[in-house]
Amino acid sequence: CHSECLGNCSQPDDPTKCVACRNFYLDGRCVETCPPPYYHFQDWRCVNFSFCQDLHHKCKNSRRQGCHQYVIHNNKCIPECPSGYTMNSSNLLCTPCLGPCPKVCHLLEGEKTIDSVTSAQELRGCTVINGSLIINIRGGNNLAAELEANLGLIEEISGYLKIRRSYALVSLSFFRKLRLIRGETLEIGNYSFYALDNQNLRQLWDWSKHNLTITQGKLFFHYNPKLCLSEIHKMEEVSGTKGRQERNDIALKTNGDQASCENELLKFSYIRTSFDKILLRWEPYWPPDFRDLLGFMLFYKEAPYQNVTEFDGQDACGSNSWTVVDIDPPLRSNDPKSQNHPGWLMRGLKPWTQYAIFVKTLVTFSDERRTYGAKSDIIYVQTDATNPSVPLDPISVSNSSSQIILKWKPPSDPNGNITHYLVFWERQAEDSELFELDYCLKGLKLPSRTWSPPFESEDSQKHNQSEYEDSAGECCSCPKTDSQILKELEESSFRKTFEDYLHNVVFVPRKT
């Protein structure tokens, strides 16, 4: 048989008469490798580009789960590009990614509803959504962080984005990388972005840091009482949809009607710091009717980097990364020049730590249904340095008659930039024990000054392991946590139920 035959053949030295091919099969003959313009397919066939392209389009058009959109890589027609490569849609070739590779997620039936953290986790790592997304989240724990972890990498949506009755959302900033909504599939009414009845939605994105392009379709905003109209108009300008909307697409009466839409800028007039305090004062603000001013709200939190936005980490279910302080308005003076500047002394802060701070007014709604208010920009203030805590785990070892090696770990709280350490030492008198000992005694162990690591005695271990207080009263049991108490109650309830079950099964009433 021919060298490319495997198993047997019907005619000697003829690659077209093989029972099976050793390498690849091409047009009725066995070959060692697939010549151009053919590609290896499933490690035994040679196919042309049209064959591989037909497989790709067949799966793409069917949208069946589990099928493969075949691509070409290293002269092979394979189910998908290997790690580190992405497909070129024009020629199906796998090309190296520039940075992290995109991950295209194809949605069944063309859309997916995100109504819980669990459903959001199914899209973790996706960068391109081939379909439409509907966000409908009523509640949950730590929602802002969970949504950002699972949806934060999405850069492109081919269909539309719909935010509907998501009472738990305060902001859409968890879509931190969303840059493009194509609108290839539109919501009824030709809408590519749809926001309806979101009672706590206050911000779409921080438009000073976020760009969003909507290729096709219109915007729809109705019944978002805490979303200011200025935020919607800003989205029109940034996304390129200005002029597409009709009169009733953006409701003037049901958007922002319960919001404090600040239209003035508060400026800080005085800032002073110490290692654990920050004193702030800002310019006074009074609405047209000074009785509408209820006070100020001061927001602050630790910020290692200057990239904080107002609604980071917030949701309507209680999660809030900001510390909020309510401040009463100052006494009002008739003389504008003698107006008191409101302020606040922030206490209990960490030394040498940068804080993000902003302040906003708290006002009631005027009778004319106009909203007044003022808010400052987010500023960054760093507390002063102070003395560091003591170095940890000092170790001293003498390696000769004239040297001592000293080692330690950095302090747990540096409280500033540590530039150097101060080492103090003092000579001590020799131990009298060394002169009084009889060095001729056998088995004498000389006193040693070398360091030995501390260890816990058996008594201390027994005390720590004991669940009861000892007789001397030195140790006591740790208080039980809520989960331990709940577990004990469940076990007790189970024992009672099981005992009742045994009584009912074992003891049967005697027939009379």
Rank of each mutant, 00 (worst) to 15 (best):
P394D: 05
T371A: 08
M297W: 10
F290I: 00
L107I: 08
Y191E: 08
I271S: 11
P351N: 03
Y194F: 11
I327D: 00
W282K: 00
L252P: 06
A144N: 02
L107G: 05
F358K: 08
F268I: 02
R370P: 09
R244F: 04
M346I: 06
I188P: 06
Q403L: 09
T118W: 05
K177L: 05
P304E: 10
P287E: 08
N320K: 04
V397L: 06
K350D: 01
A374V: 06
M346Y: 01
C261V: 10
D377A: 08
Q216R: 08
T383S: 04
E155M: 10
R272L: 01
K162C: 03
G183R: 02
G256I: 04
L133H: 00
N141Y: 15
Q403F: 05
L345D: 14
W352D: 14
S119T: 07
S402W: 06
S116K: 15
L123W: 12
I163P: 00
S269T: 08
R244M: 14
P388E: 01
G256R: 06
E184I: 11
T118S: 05
S192V: 11
S400N: 12
G240S: 09
S119P: 04
M235P: 00
F174Q: 01
N200D: 07
A145M: 10
T254L: 11
T371H: 10
L298V: 08
R179S: 06
D328S: 04
A356V: 02
R369S: 08
D367F: 04
G373I: 03
L331A: 13
V324P: 04
E237C: 15
L227S: 01
G295H: 13
N334C: 03
G373P: 04
D328E: 15
G140C: 15
P304G: 06
E237N: 14
K350M: 12
E187L: 11
I154R: 00
W282M: 02
R291C: 15
L280S: 02
R369E: 11
I134G: 03
S171E: 05
N387I: 06
Y194T: 11
L362I: 07
S239K: 08
T361E: 05
I134S: 12
T254D: 02
K301Y: 05
W207I: 05
I135L: 04
N340W: 12
Q354L: 13
F311Q: 05
K409Q: 08
Q382M: 15
R202I: 01
S274K: 11
C228Y: 07
R370V: 11
S132Y: 01
S173D: 07
N142D: 11
Q354P: 10
P391D: 02
L143H: 03
D206N: 09
A145I: 03
S401R: 06
T353Y: 11
L186K: 11
D393A: 15
P391Q: 01
C126N: 00
V238Q: 11
E155G: 10
G313I: 13
H210T: 03
L107T: 12
Q314L: 14
N248P: 07
A374R: 04
E302G: 15
Y191T: 09
Q382P: 02
A195F: 14
M346V: 04
T364S: 10
L123E: 02
F193S: 00
I163R: 00
R179F: 09
K103R: 13
W344Q: 12
A195E: 00
S260I: 11
Y372S: 06
S401E: 10
S319Y: 14
N334I: 04
L172K: 00
N399W: 07
S319Q: 07
R347A: 06
S260N: 02
D335I: 12
I379M: 14
G159A: 04
S158C: 13
A374L: 06
K209G: 09
V325S: 13
L107P: 14
V359F: 03
Y223D: 05
K103L: 08
I379W: 06
L362E: 09
K177M: 04
T323N: 13
S396I: 14
D384P: 11
S166R: 00
G140A: 15
S401L: 04
L280F: 01
M297F: 01
G140Y: 08
G343R: 04
E237P: 03
S398T: 15
L280Y: 00
A145W: 03
S260K: 05
W344T: 04
W282S: 00
Q199L: 10
T241H: 09
T118E: 12
K360I: 04
V128M: 08
W207E: 01
L107N: 12
Q339E: 04
I135W: 11
I114N: 01
D328F: 09
G256E: 14
A195I: 13
A316V: 11
T383N: 00
H341C: 15
P287F: 04
D115L: 02
P388M: 00
S401M: 07
S338W: 03
V390D: 06
R202Q: 04
Y191S: 10
F268V: 05
V104W: 14
L201G: 00
G343E: 00
E148I: 10
Y194S: 08
G343A: 09
G139K: 08
S260A: 09
Q382S: 15
L107M: 07
R244Y: 08
D315G: 07
Y300Q: 15
L219C: 08
Y355Q: 00
L219S: 07
G313C: 04
G318L: 12
R165H: 06
L229F: 15
F296Q: 15
T215F: 09
D206Q: 05
T113F: 02
K350F: 11
T127R: 05
I379G: 04
A385S: 05
N263R: 13
L349I: 07
A144L: 12
L180F: 13
R281S: 03
Y380S: 03
W286R: 10
D312R: 11
S274L: 07
V117M: 15
D206P: 11
L147A: 04
T254V: 05
V117G: 13
A259R: 06
E237M: 10
V359G: 01
P288I: 10
W282I: 02
S173P: 02
F174D: 01
Y300K: 02
W408S: 00
L229Q: 13
L161E: 00
I181R: 00
I188H: 12
V238K: 15
S321N: 15
Q245T: 13
F220Y: 02
F221N: 01
L280T: 14
E368A: 08
I214H: 03
Q216V: 08
H106P: 07
Q354H: 06
G140M: 02
F221M: 14
F193I: 12
T118G: 15
A149E: 08
Y285N: 09
E302V: 04
L196I: 12
P330E: 09
K177S: 07
P288Q: 08
Q382N: 12
V104Y: 06
I154Q: 00
Q245W: 05
D393P: 04
T241N: 11
Y160E: 03
I232V: 03
R247F: 10
N190L: 08
F290N: 15
Y355T: 00
H106Q: 12
T361N: 07
K234Q: 12
D289Y: 05
K209V: 15
I188D: 02
A195K: 00
Q306A: 14
G318V: 08
I134M: 10
V170R: 03
A259G: 12
L107V: 10
L345V: 11
G139S: 15
V128A: 12
C261E: 09
Q258L: 12
K112A: 07
R332Q: 04
D257V: 14
N190W: 01
D367H: 12
F193M: 13
L219N: 07
E148C: 04
S321E: 13
S119Y: 08
D206M: 08
V381A: 12
H106R: 04
R138C: 03
M297Q: 05
V324H: 05
S274Y: 08
A356K: 02
G256V: 07
L108E: 04
D292P: 10
G373E: 08
N399D: 15
S269R: 06
L169P: 06
E246F: 10
T383L: 01
L153W: 14
